[in-house]
Computed example of a mutant assay.
Amino acid sequence: MKLTTHLVSAPLHTPFITALRTATSADSLLVELTDGELSGWGEAPQVWKVTGESLAGAQACVEGPIAAALDGLEPDDFTEALRRIQAAVQGNFGAKAAVDVALHDLVARRRGQTLHGFLGSTVSSVSTDVTLSVGDPESLAASAVDRVADGFGVLKVKVGTGDASADFHRVRRVREAIGPEPRLRLDANQGWSRRDAVNAIRALEDAGCDIELVEQPVVAADLEGMAWITDRVSTPILADESVYGVRDLVAVIRHGAADLVNVKLAKCGGLATARTLLELAREHGLGAIVGSMMESHVGIGAAAALVAAYPTTAVNDLDAAWWLRESPVVGGVRYAGSVIHLPTAAGLGVTGLTL
């Protein structure tokens, strides 16, 4: 098997603004794993503010220790290859995820199966929410109305901008603008204090804003704080940055820190670990969604295939590639409003690069 890396920068049709950053493009390392005439694809997005990983670091990791670990193996050595990918280096979860997904894609192609079929699913589509960029109350409300018109029934509002009272007014204005039916979920990106989180969530509950869940209200390491919040509000709490791998999820479970977990391939290291996390959450009564970084149709295709085979308890957060002006690859998943249609071609259905 041969590993090749491709640096891509895909422009967004609209700037994506959060409390952490403003993005105008999705910058990723695409990994191509080739065996004969067949290639499998994977993706490592650049996520400085979350995982701390860069494209240069991911490229060095893939072309260096991971490539060396896979040297001499064949696609049929699937389980051993997955083990070696994870053992090749510490951290570098995006790089590991890219090669893990590329290997899954390649093996599925060799068997003439779609990736979701290889994972055990006959589902042909999955649903996603859509994130609203950070803005003032009126611009947020206008964006929310537009996204509902685009066919999205679940909207995610970024909060945690440093002023919990302002966050409350923004969210309440969005609910007023869209009416009672679309679901609203919030993502604080670790931006609240414990008390601000409880005060803001209770205020939204008292105002009848009907919030589906609140994602990562406090800093990732503060599991005691997140448990303190979970115990004091009725709205479900979703752990995101607090959970990378299995040990992290075990700690969340032991602390009673959250009601749900957000599983992301670039955060946990690929499909193999993601499947374990989803199974572990289910066994311990936690809800789950599958999320994404700012990724292209490659990363989103892998995440959507995972969701098809491992149904989650809430609508997933897979809108990242919807923001792209055009896909950097030929083939793969496609969006129709909130619905992501999975490919009928083998593997991820990706046949090459467009950018």
Rank of each mutant, 00 (worst) to 15 (best):
A207P: 11
N199Y: 11
M226H: 08
A207T: 08
A197R: 04
E215F: 07
G225I: 06
Q216S: 13
A221Q: 14
E224C: 01
D222V: 01
L204F: 03
I229C: 09
V218A: 05
L204K: 03
L184N: 00
A221L: 13
P182N: 00
E205L: 12
N199T: 14
L213Q: 15
D196V: 00
V219E: 05
V219Y: 00
V218M: 05
V198K: 04
N199H: 12
V214I: 08
D222H: 03
I211S: 04
R183C: 03
M226F: 06
R194Y: 05
Q190E: 14
A207C: 10
G191E: 11
A197I: 08
A188T: 13
D206G: 02
R185M: 14
D210T: 13
E224T: 08
D222W: 05
V219I: 10
N199S: 14
V219F: 02
E224H: 08
S193D: 10
T230S: 15
I229N: 07
G208C: 10
D222A: 03
P217V: 09
E205D: 11
C209M: 01
V198E: 09
C209S: 10
A227W: 12
A227L: 12
M226N: 08
V198H: 02
D196M: 00
A197W: 07
D187K: 05
R195D: 14
E215M: 05
P180D: 13
L213H: 12
C209W: 08
M226K: 03
P217Q: 06
E205C: 12
R195K: 09
M226E: 08
C209V: 12
P180F: 05
D231H: 07
L186N: 00
L184G: 03
E212P: 04
S193C: 07
L186F: 03
G191D: 13
E215V: 07
V218R: 09
A200N: 04
A197E: 07
T230E: 10
L204N: 02
S193V: 09
R185I: 09
V218L: 15
A188G: 13
D210G: 02
W228Y: 15
D231N: 06
S193N: 10
N189C: 08
V219H: 04
W228T: 14
R185Q: 06
I211A: 02
N189Y: 06
A200V: 13
E215C: 08
P180M: 10
L213V: 15
V198D: 02
A188Q: 11
L186G: 01
Q190N: 13
P180Q: 12
W228S: 15
I201A: 11
A227H: 07
W192E: 10
I201L: 12
T230I: 06
E224N: 09
D196G: 10
A203V: 05
G191F: 12
A227Q: 07
A221E: 15
E224F: 08
L223A: 06
R195M: 05
E181N: 05
W228V: 11
E215H: 02
E181Q: 11
E215W: 01
P182W: 02
W192N: 07
L223R: 09
D206A: 14
R194W: 05
P182L: 02
L213F: 15
L204T: 02
T230D: 07
N189K: 10
R183P: 01
I201T: 09
C209F: 07
